Simulated scan of single mutants.
Amino acid sequence: MDYKEIFDLILDENNFTVGGGSSSAIAGAMGCGLMGMVVNLSKSKDYGYSDKEYDDMLEELNDLKTKLLKGSVEDNKAYLLIRDAYKLPKSTEEEKEARKKAIQNAGIEAAKVPLSNAMLNKRVNEIGMSLLDKSNPACITDLQAGIDFSKVGIDAGRANVEANLPLIKDQNIVDDFNSKIENL
């Protein structure tokens, strides 16, 4: 599955396998695209950065966009791990223990992916904020939309991490995730 298929599933109200985590990654990728456009429309003018600095930003935004689009697919895979873990048999004590472990491991993965996507979105936001006074003013609404998309990516990513923490019974792991989301 690729990000285009993920996007189609996001738009399908009858699909229950793709949600906020994948959406937050795609929102960040959209922010990268908008900011990249602003960067391209700011080059060769005197808005505060050199063309080299704008090119470096553009390269980083394209890298972030690629990672976020991949992150949208990875988030879906993580959700499917949870779904499959809950489907495991639980008739014997051994099966119950295996299922419990599988749910926790899936919960860890399902918290890692949106955390990574949220951190990527945080960087997208930082780039956008650095462009506010150093880019083509005719593009301010595009830039603001990109910044807003990155904020959605941060907030929804954080919410997805928090939603998966109850699946994790190891308090040290939960505490580690909580300290990381505080930095968002």
Rank of each mutant, 00 (worst) to 15 (best):
A163F: 02
I127Q: 02
N164F: 04
A102Y: 05
Y47F: 11
E74G: 05
S116Q: 06
A159D: 06
N40R: 15
D133I: 13
E60W: 04
K77N: 12
P89S: 15
S50L: 11
D46K: 05
G28S: 09
Y79Q: 11
N183A: 15
I127R: 00
G28K: 01
G107I: 01
E93S: 14
V18E: 01
G31Q: 04
A138R: 11
P114C: 08
D176I: 07
Y3E: 05
L34P: 00
E60M: 12
S23P: 03
A102P: 05
L61H: 11
Y79N: 09
L9H: 14
E162T: 14
P114N: 07
S24R: 00
A138K: 13
D12F: 07
E94A: 15
N76Y: 12
I147G: 00
K65L: 06
A156D: 07
L120D: 01
L41P: 04
L115I: 14
Y79T: 13
K45Y: 08
S150A: 11
K134H: 12
L167W: 05
D175M: 13
I181F: 10
D155E: 12
D2P: 10
A118W: 01
N117E: 10
C32N: 08
N136E: 14
E95G: 08
V113C: 05
L143P: 00
I168M: 03
L69Y: 04
D142I: 02
F7R: 05
E93Q: 14
S42T: 14
G20C: 09
V113S: 02
E74S: 07
K70L: 05
